[in-house]
Design a protein around this nucleic acid. Structure first.
Length: 440
RNA sequence: GGAGAGAUGGCUGAGUGGCCGAAAGCGAUCGCCUGCUAAGCGAUUGUACGCCCGUAAAAGGUGUACCGCGGGUUCAAAUCCCGCUCUCUCCGCCA
């Protein structure tokens, strides 16, 4: 049995890469990535050489085996041929082993190459080079010094960081009373908006996934240390619903008329935050566990950039209805995520901290994830199979939305108003104050 | 956790060592027939990777692999052996 090519589902189109190495290399440099393409080409050539050799031998053996069958049927002597094929088989086995290791190397190498950014992505060195695409609303004016949400939450006794730390550890928070209700209200409000008005279908997925799924969307193998792994089992806690939702169609061929597919999912997200020691240690900003409503799309290649614009607008709509001032930025080449071809970040204004904070990230992965996860569709016209494009965007990160509401809607008396659109989700409560922080 | 059964193409389902990338049926596509519809007849109907030829890209030719996954036996494996995963049934346990 032969060693199997996993070669089909790697990142970039291997034939495209062979022929456009200069161009791709330049794109990688713009992302701040140095990829050793010489090594890649060497491995690729080596693989094809071995493949050709082994397939030639197999062809020889297949022919000979047929002859042996015939000889035996005619009661003729086949021992010489069998002996010869025995040698051929041994040789094939050798070559197979060498092919396997070469493909493994090539594959491992490929999995570490990020996506190629879209031509419209601005070239830059870091987040300071992300151009602002548009902004909505304006900074609210306060007649007092606005407080950060951690102070608001503690003073209203609705966010308990100390007990969160006691129960689990740093970067975990206990919500109580109306903060818990607010979080739940936001989840429902977002899901209702996206399903009811934006045309998404809700899905509820497993919150742990296997290694294949994590590899399909690009978290593995490169970002293993960012994930929580279940001890003794090959399961990982999801860092975003993007992972289980995108993998719904892993290893499938979809009908063109099913596209585009729009899904929205609530999930908790688990992130180890390795490497962010000492960063955002206060409050809800950077937690090991947080809730998120995530939109995921599967589209035809020619539709994906239109769909990215719509996806981004759908995410912005949440902030508009909540009345939160925000801006949308285009991530520059150096700030792009590993798997993304183009990303818009939504940044909400946080008056208590005097910063714009990322609250949503909307990306087009083009066929990058689709290749890794082998998600394809069949053209109606030609019957040809192609990779779909996948996209996703937060709609929104719920914990950070709570932060935005607490900081933007805080009042001089220390209470916090509830945006009108959320009140039906909180049984009409319009304000979180000391006297009612526990009523739901 | 214990016992048993199973996993084959878009679907149903045959296949216990070579004639099997795989029967048959269904579905689908194209063509024929038909006043229309139905029925009927014929053909086609998986994916990946490589090589050749050629191209803007393709088309075309050819080879290899794939019958849940991985390994083994053999000149030769869907078929025999081992391990794993998943599904189903029964028992136990459990939200």
């Amino acid at each position: 049995m032969s060693p199997l090519l996993f070669i089909g589902n790697i990142m970039l189109d291997i034939r495209y890469l062979r022929q456009n190495i200069e161009f791709v290399n330049q794109k990688m440099n713009q992302r701040g990535q140095a990829i050793d393409f010489d090594r890649f080409l060497g491995l690729d050539t080596k693989r094809r050489d071995i493949l050709l050799a082994v397939e030639t031998l197999r062809n020889e053996r297949n022919d000979a085996s047929k002859k042996i069958g015939e000889l035996k049927k005619n009661k003729s002597d086949a021992t010489a041929l069998i002996a010869k094929m025995s040698e051929v088989s041994a040789k094939i086995k050798e070559l197979d082993e060498s092919l396997r290791t070469t493909e493994e190397e090539l594959n491992n190498f490929s999995l570490m190459i990020p996506n190629i950014q879209h031509e419209s992505v601005p070239i830059g060195q870091g987040s300071e080079d992300n151009p602002i695409l548009r902004s909505w609303g304006k900074k609210p004016a306060f007649a007092f010094e606005p407080k950060a949400h951690w102070d608001i939450g503690e003073s209203l006794n609705i966010l308990d960081f100390a007990r969160g730390a006691k129960i689990a550890g740093a970067r975990f928070t206990l919500y109580r009373g109306l903060a818990a209700a607010l979080e739940r209200a936001l989840v429902n409000f977002m899901l209702d908006l996206h399903t009811g008005e934006h045309g998404y279908t809700e899905v509820l997925t497993p919150f742990m996934v296997n290694r294949e799924s994590m590899t399909g969307t690009g978290q593995l193998p490169k970002f293993a240390e960012d994930l929580f792994k279940i001890e003794g089992m090959d399961y990982f806690l999801i860092p975003t619903a993007e992972v289980p939702v995108t993998n719904i169609f892993r290893d499938e061929i979809l009908e063109e008329n099913k596209l585009p597919i729009h899904y929205v999912a609530y999930s908790p997200c688990f992130r180890s935050e390795a490497g962010s020691y000492g960063k955002d240690t206060r409050g809800l900003i950077r937690q090991h566990q947080f809730n998120k409503v995530e939109m995921v799309k599967f589209t035809r290649p020619e539709d994906s950039y239109d769909e990215l614009e719509k996806l981004t607008v759908n995410a912005e709509e949440v902030l508009k209805r909540l009345g939160i001032h925000h801006r949308t930025v285009t991530l520059c080449s150096a700030d792009l995520g590993f798997s993304s071809a183009k990303t818009y970040d939504l940044e909400a204004w946080m008056p208590g901290q005097n910063v714009y904070l990322e609250i949503s990230s909307c990306s087009n992965f083009e066929d990058y994830q689709a290749r890794r996860a082998s998600i394809r569709f069949r053209r109606e016209e030609s019957g040809k199979v192609e990779f779909v494009h996948t996209l996703n965007g937060s709609g929104l990160a719920v914990g950070r939305t709570v932060v935005a509401i607490l900081e933007n809607y805080q009042q001089a008396d220390g209470s916090v108003l509830i945006p009108q659109v959320l009140q039906p989700y909180m049984r009409g409560v319009d304000r979180i104050a000391h006297h009612n922080n526990n009523i739901l």
